[in-house]
Simulated assay, not measured.
Amino acid sequence: MDVADLRREYSKGGLHRADLPADPLALFETWLGQACEAKLSDPTAMVVATVDVSGQPWQRTVLLKHYDAAGMLFYTNMGSRKAVQLAGNPCISLLFPWHMLDRQVHVTGRVEKLSAFEVMRYFHSRPKDSQIAAWVSKQSSRISARGVLESKFMELKQKFANGEVPLPSFWGGYRVVIDSVEFWQGGEHRLHDRFLYQRERDGWQIDRLAP
Rank of each mutant, 00 (worst) to 15 (best):
P97T: 10
S93H: 14
V136K: 05
L94D: 11
S93K: 12
Q131R: 07
A87V: 08
I143W: 04
T76Q: 06
L95H: 10
W135K: 04
G109N: 06
S80L: 02
T108I: 03
Q131V: 02
G79W: 02
F117G: 15
K82I: 02
S93P: 12
K113E: 12
G79R: 10
N89H: 03
L95W: 06
F96P: 05
M72I: 11
V136F: 01
T76R: 08
Q131K: 01
S115P: 12
F117S: 15
A70M: 02
I143F: 11
Q85V: 06
A116E: 14
R103Q: 04
A116Y: 06
T108E: 12
A133N: 13
D129K: 12
G109Q: 03
S130V: 06
L94E: 10
A70G: 04
K82T: 10
R121Y: 08
K82Y: 04
V119W: 01
S125Y: 01
A87M: 11
F123W: 04
A87Q: 15
L86H: 08
S125H: 09
V119Y: 00
L86F: 04
W98L: 07
R103C: 00
E112D: 12
Y122I: 07
E112C: 08
L101E: 01
R142E: 14
N77Y: 01
V136S: 05
G109M: 04
F96M: 00
H106F: 11
R126A: 04
M72E: 09
K128W: 00
N89T: 02
Q131D: 00
H124T: 03
V111K: 10
V105C: 07
F117D: 15
A87T: 13
F117T: 15
V119I: 08
L101V: 00
A83F: 04
L73K: 14
G109E: 04
G71C: 02
C91Q: 15
A87C: 13
H99M: 12
S125V: 02
S144P: 09
Q139G: 00
W98E: 09
H106D: 13
M100C: 07
Q139F: 02
